[in-house]
């Protein structure tokens, strides 16, 4: 196997002078052409991890430890010029709310042309031709006319397509997607996910995408990483993680999905309690206060990743007991 495109080792990100540990020791490898989904609830550190890969967190107020390399470059050691070339050129990002992430006073064409010309010395006409090709690529109808539209003149799904086109403008190798479908209608969500999958296949992109929707993760990801309180608590192939979840938190997430076939009168299972205060983490397993399987040993020390299958690890000392409470296939399908 060739060297991974992205390699993160022991990433720790802290805000507010180290008081808030948003990311607390994340290891992540991403092969070329692989799609990985980071899932977890708000504040679990998934977006911060993603932003760290582009060094977008405010430099003065953030402390970063660990090592990150993308395409053979050390992300944390880059100088200003190299960083500018890297952002957009090697790794680029699509955001949750395209209406906010696109500048309202410029047409979409102008924004894409500007991004291309920032990275490569091409003429305005050529940059525009490339923008047009990108719009066709992300299947925006009547692309020629849409290039001259302002963001507010388009529908949400169309804007997200345009945002993807903008992110792909400089032919990056790595696409970081921060909840790309959360702000969209359910019907549009699946179209965008399929588009991402298709682009990934055609362009050989690697994608890390952050979501709190397990359904979306299963749809596009090869591998799923579940984050809780700044740590990856379980990782494995999408298939393994759904069929045989081994961390109580993953199990809780799967059970708490509101499913279409939820029969009337049956209760939607929720995870009790709320996520821990990142400024005041418990010493042992961070999920222990909410865990149905908690024993005394859980509160003693941080559980190490325990292998439970090929490429499947869970940070839980009670993986075997957890297997018993995992939802059955019937429960998952809602039959």
């Amino acid at each position: 196997m060739t060297a991974p495109l992205v390699s993160i080792r022991g990433l720790k990100v802290a805000f507010a002078n180290g008081a808030v540990r948003a990311v607390d020791g994340v290891d992540l490898d991403l092969a070329r052409g692989e799609v990985v989904a980071l899932i977890g609830e708000s504040g679990s550190g998934k977006s911060v991890t993603l932003r760290s890969l582009l060094r977008l967190n405010p430099e003065r107020r953030t402390q970063i430890e660990g090592a990150m390399s993308v395409d053979g470059r050390d992300v944390l050691a880059m100088g200003r010029r190299e960083l500018a070339q890297y952002r957009g050129g090697v790794a680029s990002m699509i955001f949750q709310e395209p209406l906010l992430a696109l500048d309202p006073v410029y047409t979409l064409g102008q924004q894409i042309v500007e991004s291309i010309r920032r990275h490569e010395s091409v003429g305005a006409a050529e940059a525009r031709a490339r923008a047009l090709a990108l719009f066709e690529r992300v299947r925006i109808p009547s692309p020629e006319r849409r290039l001259d539209s302002y963001p507010h003149e388009m529908s949400g799904g169309m804007r997200q397509r345009a945002m993807i086109a903008l992110a792909l403008a400089c032919r990056p190798k790595l696409l970081l997607a921060d909840e790309p479908t959360t702000a969209l209608d359910a019907t549009v969500q699946i179209q965008i996910l399929l588009l991402l999958r298709e682009l990934q296949r055609d362009l050989g992109l690697s994608i890390i995408f952050v979501t709190h929707d397990i359904g979306a993760a299963v749809e596009v990801a090869d591998r799923i990483l579940v984050m809780y309180a700044g740590r990856i608590v379980e990782e494995g192939s999408a298939r393994d993680l759904i069929r045989t979840p081994r961390h109580p938190y993953t199990i809780g997430l799967l059970k708490s999905r509101a499913h279409g076939a939820l029969s009337k009168g049956s209760r939607l299972e929720a995870i009790p309690g709320s996520p821990p205060d990142l400024a005041n983490l418990p010493p042992g397993c961070t999920f222990a206060p909410r865990c149905p399987l908690v024993i005394e040993a859980c509160q003693a020390e941080r559980p190490p990743p325990i292998p439970v299958g090929p490429g499947h690890r869970a940070r839980c000392i009670r993986v075997n007991e957890a297997a018993a409470i995992a939802p059955t296939a019937e429960e998952l399908l809602g039959v």
Binding site: L56, A84, Y86, R87, G88, M93, D103, S115, R118, A169
Partner: peptide, 12 residues
Amino acid sequence: DYVEAARASGAG
């Protein structure tokens, strides 16, 4: 967000 997006695409 669009300023952050611009930073993410390498704008100084």
